[in-house]
Design a binder for these strands. Sequence first.
DNA 1: GACCCGTGGTGCGCATGACGCAACGGTAGC
DNA 2: GCTACCGTTGCGTCATGCGCACCACGGGTC
Lengths: 260, 260
Amino acid sequence: MRTTGPEGGSTVQSVDRAVTILELLALHGQAGITQLAQELGVHKSTASRLVAALERRRLVEQVEERGRYRLGVGILKLAGATSARPDLVQEARPVVRRLASQTGETVNLAVLAGGAALYVDQVSGASNLSSYNWVGQHIPLHATSNGKVLVSELTDPELGRVLGDLTGYTPATLTDRAALDAQLAEVRERGWAIAVDELDVGLTAVAAPVRDARGDIVASVSVSGPTFRFDRARVAEVATAVCAAAAEVSGRLSPGPAGR
Amino acid sequence: MRTTGPEGGSTVQSVDRAVTILELLALHGQAGITQLAQELGVHKSTASRLVAALERRRLVEQVEERGRYRLGVGILKLAGATSARPDLVQEARPVVRRLASQTGETVNLAVLAGGAALYVDQVSGASNLSSYNWVGQHIPLHATSNGKVLVSELTDPELGRVLGDLTGYTPATLTDRAALDAQLAEVRERGWAIAVDELDVGLTAVAAPVRDARGDIVASVSVSGPTFRFDRARVAEVATAVCAAAAEVSGRLSPGPAGR
DNA sequence: GACCCGTGGTGCGCATGACGCAACGGTAGC
DNA sequence: GCTACCGTTGCGTCATGCGCACCACGGGTC
């Protein structure tokens, strides 16, 4: 068989198989060689060698001796190189600063990493100079506007994997998966997410997606502050501003028509 | 050639090459096909096909048309699936807090990412409440105790790749590769690293490795503060404490005998 | 303890998929 | 317009990745 695939682009069968193994491990959390071979449609020895190749490079690790496998720390190291790559934070910084100045609230930039929202930048506005510093922290996805944005366009299996337990942090936290799904549908429809008193009582945040040239969500921008400052009119005003800011960051990451 | 590699484990050449491409992109941020082919030691067409295979699965993306490549969002999605594993920052946080309280200095947790030490957590002790926040920043490896720990057990080729230029930041910065190698040998021997006035004049830090179940270094913990507080006796005291703390974090990540 | 079953792992031979070569089209710089 | 360099692709070759057969091991059952 030629290495040219039906999509017109070339392919490398072994690499495709190895990547599928990584995706299967992402989907299942853990899996054995026999299961991976069955799902991949290859012989057990083939699956075993592919897994061993990935294991040598730390992309996969064995959970226990002679047992099941899962994704390894090598994935996290690669992810560390992408999520902190200079252009996202650097390109976003002027926009994040301006939005903080414009709204007076705290503005954050976050990426999806490790089953949580990883906050990678923060600028506080005039009304919030002593706000809590979220940068570097992994924050629950279901209880934050950033988290809702970051997962809003994942497939159901992906979503199931990254969400884990819907822990209640306040009485307002969404702990029902169907309710969360409904909110994610709203996020997709109107292009922004809101969280009111869901992570902390008294904290409200509105977030919008940052997209790459292909239209995939790669980060989110949020504006947050005390709930008493976010009446309905203020939410609408902030939502408009954060959508514009996120679109601008998208444009800065991928100049040209695809980045709009 | 057999698929059994010299290490006794099997290998798949195409998969190894594809993974090396991912690591090179993590290291450089961006790279072109010609550069990747040269560093990989293969023909341009081979590199092009391997990159195309990774691009189809979203592990790599083109920065601009007919141009350079970087790691793609597929890496982030895989990373997002590692949530079933203990989160490094969450598991380390109680230990980091206690060490900050015990020493009074600033304690950091860092991982190796993208050819730098990525600081992922920080707690400041009583003597250092207004210290600089390093979290989210990529800090040079050769000029920090965390960096020295993180690279201390890399092979020579890996070390050559991640170090880049040994930039001088202060008169004390190690800019000679042989001198750095000698210090890394000391780190391996005694299990901790020190940096005195190397990144900033007046800043001293002591760091120790966090290991996974296989004994690989996955992170480091450091204690830092102004150089005038770190006489010889104090360094010994802090080194003992940070080694114990790092060992405890290792144990929390991998319970059982291998994690000790 | 013996037996069975299912697992992950490995040596071997060979079919084929990955590779390098040559050439192409596109772009930038002069 | 020319040159240099880039990434890409068709093609033929052969080195590699593959499946087969078999092994060792652990767990469960009798």
